[in-house]
Nucleic acid binder design. Structure first.
Length: 300
DNA sequence: CGCCAGGCCTTAC
DNA sequence: GTAAGGCATGGC
């Protein structure tokens, strides 16, 4: 086992594993006390991730981040939890808006994640009409049933399945895992990637709206799921997924941003949220409203 | 029991 | 291009 620390002074603007991992962006992590998404913080709990054949554990300590892993975890953590983002700069660049400012103040230390593209696409196909706790249980089930085993510290962990591994699943099997009508979407999208017809990572080099359009070719991927994949795995910090919570916020607080179509409304709220880092703003507002930190007023 | 959850698909206009 | 209806499942 390798161990190490990342000192606080290398985390510009702070970092909260709890807020970052339990804010509905990433469904690949587990928590050592099993209380993921319980709404309860546990300062001593380890967060664990199996990725690219390695296992990483991390938790906050007084002086920064402590990690234990099958390998040198520092570069993995830096990349996947975006530890090099300067949160102070991002907060300073956010628009002058009361809801946005309250969300940033209430959840300081929340960072965007940078998960693998295929994993994220599948996770958000599962997310349709589903609460975050259940999305997490679906992704857990996929990893447990189809992912490669990794041994670490006397336990067995499961990587997220590769496209080929997931393409071997049947619709019936995934329905039995509780995926419901999303089961055939997952199987077919996995098959498309495994067969080389397309790959979500192809979107990375495209202009933002072209990238979103590209991802909708996958079954079960509409504009909203595409935006989630772009924001949480492909580096499009300007992407603003229009989910139920953001739509409620638009209806009650930014009604002029409702332009009817997804594309036009997306452009309007992206502009309202500051453009370049609008997706960062969205993630704070989403978490703020979803967790009930403040109520969403009905439209006036 | 009804309603809702980080929506998408098909079909009809 | 936009609108309506169907779709699995579990928690409240």
């Amino acid at each position: 086992m390798e161990t190490g620390e990342i000192p606080s002074d290398e985390l510009a603007g702070g970092f909260s594993p709890y807020l970052t991992i339990e804010s509905g962006q990433t469904y690949r992590w587990t928590r050592s006390d099993g209380e993921l998404y319980s709404g309860r913080r546990a300062p001593d709990a380890w967060y664990e991730l199996a990725i690219d054949g390695e296992v990483v554990r991390v938790r906050s300590i007084e002086t920064g981040l402590e990690w234990r892993s099958t390998t040198d975890a520092a570069p993995i953590l830096r990349r996947r939890l975006r530890l090099d983002d300067d949160l102070d700069r991002i907060v300073d660049a956010a628009p002058d808006d009361p809801l946005v400012e309250r969300a940033f103040d209430a959840h300081r230390g929340l960072r965007l994640v940078a998960d693998p593209a295929f994993d994220t696409l599948i996770s958000f196909i599962c997310s349709a009409q589903m609460r975050v706790e259940r999305i997490n249980s679906m992704v857990d089930a996929l990893a447990r049933e189809y992912g490669t085993e990794i041994a670490f510290d006397g336990r067995i962990y499961h990587d997220f399945p590769t496209p080929a591994q997931l393409a071997r699943a049947t619709e019936t099997e995934l329905r039995d895992l509780g995926l419901g009508y999303r089961a055939p979407y997952v199987v077919e999208t996995a098959r498309m990637v495994a067969d080389g017809e397309a790959h979500p990572a192809e979107a990375r080099e495209m202009p933002y709206e072209d990238a979103r359009e590209y991802l909708t070719r996958f079954v079960g991927v509409g504009e909203k799921v595409a935006d989630c994949a772009l924001l949480f795995s492909l580096g499009f910090d300007e992407a603003v997924p229009l989910d139920t919570w953001i739509r409620k916020a638009i209806a009650s607080r930014y009604p002029e941003c409702d332009r009817g179509s997804y594309a036009a409304t997306s452009r309007a709220i992206r502009d309202r949220f500051g453009g370049e880092y609008a997706g960062y703003v969205q993630t704070y507002v989403f978490h703020h409203l979803r967790t009930g930190a403040e109520p969403v007023e009905p439209p006036t």
